[in-house]
Design a binder for these strands. Structure first.
Lengths: 207, 207
DNA sequence: TTTTTATTGTGAAATAATTAACAATTTTCT
DNA sequence: AGAAAATTGTTAATTATTTCACAATAAAAA
């Protein structure tokens, strides 16, 4: 398979989640327009994404849900799974841990880090909290590949540096402050304030 | 001004945040390449966005930070501001409230809603918690235009329906479950699991 | 059996977003 | 003053993404 567009990767993850829900209800087949409806996109888009990953549905019956789930898994998961850490055990960090807790995913949150001594050596939905100074050590020991930054914005750049030094491979930065990392480390930044301002803009404009 | 691309709107919000930080440090001018560095994009992109909003910098001095902040405000803010509600006072909902607390923004979170009686009639960082059954009433009384959904995924569709009935104008859905709303309501969905899976994919692929 | 309907798969077209290229011009340097 | 360097503004080119249009065909209906 050549190059999957970034947007396609995102949608595949979403398709899978929707498909898992359908499968849990005992549904076996699904049409492109059903997936499209759920995701607010066009059926063509769904078919094209599925085409790109080389899967073929059956005419007039649609796609076999379980096959599609498995194939998407082959593409976006690693066989052994990847370990994830949450840095910053505040409300947002705990929300991330809760979201993941008990999910069937190949991604496991295996550690939380914080600088506040009250938060360490406790268990959050099955995830142990460590002091931030232990980050290098635990990341190596637990073979953690990905970190989610949920600290207060001001602390983000320093945390990013320390994660890079600890050998992290990918970072998801949820603070509103952009961080700088070397180009061999995959960085995704998402900023809730921006999203809200965007909604506000379109509410204003559309009104 | 014609049509600003969606992506430009998002970046303008981010530029403004970065500019506010620079302004607070007493910086007066800024170059396109400085903004670009902070946001991990190219200087051309910055200049193009700024061109699109009709602002003109001064050659060899760059842009005047305060002017740019004000202009971006004219574009993305409404004069009177907009009121926002958080539906679901869990970790994620409280994280949103905290992020916004005390910010200079034209967006104010003025209410939280939850179905758990223990959570209502309390104040969260200055935001009062109400029972979800009061949603229609409070949304009208407080003139709330935008809602952020941070309830457990299963409850999202019903919450969205109730928000629509209450006359909300824009929804930001942070649950992993897509919701359906009429086309006159602006809907933005963001899914943390998808983001994490995307990071994992690129970590896997790049390795 | 034949016709109609619904659905996939995909090349081509259209649209959206980014980047390249460079003229214009201000500041700094010599 | 004149030359060199740096930076903006913008058109054009490129790249990425989405949508159109329709052939192929399986299933359902007649």
């Amino acid at each position: 398979m050549k190059h999957l567009p970034h947007k396609t990767i995102e949608r595949l993850s979403q398709y899978r989640r929707a498909l898992l829900i359908c499968a849990a209800k005992g549904k076996v087949h699904i049409f492109s327009h059903e997936i499209a409806k759920i995701q607010h996109i066009t059926p063509v888009q769904v078919r094209r994404d599925i085409m790109l990953i080389g899967y073929t549905g059956t005419l007039r019956k649609g796609y076999i849900i379980q096959e599609l789930i498995d194939l998407i898994g082959d593409i976006i998961d690693t066989k052994e799974g990847l370990n994830v850490a949450v840095v910053g055990i505040g409300n947002l960090g705990r929300a991330m841990i809760n979201y993941f807790n008990g999910k069937r995913t190949k991604l496991s949150i295996v550690a939380g880090f914080d600088s506040n001594p009250d938060k360490i050596d406790r268990i959050y939905s099955g995830v142990k909290g460590y002091h931030i100074d232990q980050m290098g050590e635990i990341i190596k020991k637990e073979n953690i590949a990905i970190a989610i930054i949920t600290v207060p914005a001001g602390a983000a750049p320093e945390i990013a540096d320390r994660l890079v030094n600890a050998g992290i491979k990918g970072i998801l930065n949820y603070t509103p402050k952009p961080v700088q990392v070397p180009s061999n480390i995959y960085l995704e930044e998402y900023d809730m304030i921006t999203s809200l301002e965007k909604v506000a803009f379109f509410v204003k404009t559309h009104a």
